[in-house]
Amino acid sequence: MTYLSKSPWILHYDASSCNGCDIEVLAALTPVYDVERFGIVNTGNPKHADVFLITGGINSQNVEIVKNLYEQMPNPKVVVAIGICAASGGVFRECYNVSGGIDTVIPVDVYVPGCAARPESIIDGVVTALGILEQKKLAMNVNPGTGKKSPGET
């Protein structure tokens, strides 16, 4: 048991959803669902986040942004694709500007079904993600990540 599962901080991004899942993610924070009971906090900042909640099938303009946000999250981290669009593109998969599920861009650990996904399933998805987060942490302890330097640094 690590502290990771007791304090998952989330980052939420809409990679072109219809808003339905987004407001359900927010609803999960509010009194009726109150995910802060589990220590879940919506940080709004990738550098503080452990869990990346992402909604919507990915739109071409969002590809770089999602990658950037994912890159800025410190390890260990998990990605939860929320709603059917994030899983496969959903009703929009045939749209010219939607490339499909989130997994076409970054690795996804948990898929939450629903259109729109209900807050209960979102919470369930995050809790499932916590298990994966722990595994990743253990894997990290086995192979500690090697520091990589960016070109600008000396």
Partner: peptide
């Protein structure tokens, strides 16, 4: 919870 948070943060990599 604050202790869990801090414990968690120490478990993360330094970025």
């Amino acid at each position: 919870q604050p202790f869990y948070d801090v414990g968690k943060l120490f478990e993360k990599e330094t970025v």
